[in-house]
Amino acid sequence: MKIAITSVGNSLSSNIDERFGRCAFFVIYDTDTKSVEFIPNHAKDAEGGAGTAAVQLIASQQVAKVVSGQFGVKVKPLLDSLKIQMISIKGSHSVQEIINMVEER
């Protein structure tokens, strides 16, 4: 299963980015192969519709879950319709911490 995590930087020690649509990077973590991929979010500076673009990006990576701080009102129904589970995290956690949490479940 693949999981998307929004991140402020491109390393495992980077903190998660609390904004879904306007995050700096998407981390795609594969729980089967344990592989980690960092994808820069080109839509983060879009005037509008950054959330829509972000959903497209992670959906095309076939993720089942996405971890971020906040999901906007336009994004929630889209992710629901694609059956991608949203996980909201508050406070500062590193990408590695999130991966550990996912693995412990």
């Binding site: 879009a46 005037e47 509008g48 519709g49 829509t52 497209q56 959906a59 095309s60 336009k74 694609l82």
Partner: peptide, 20 residues
């Protein structure tokens, strides 16, 4: 220009985000 088209060719999904 407004990211108002939700486009996922792999899932054959395309629709307009009216608010955008």
């Amino acid at each position: 220009h407004y990211n108002a088209i939700f486009y996922l060719p792999s899932l054959q999904q395309i629709h307009v985000m009216e608010d955008l």
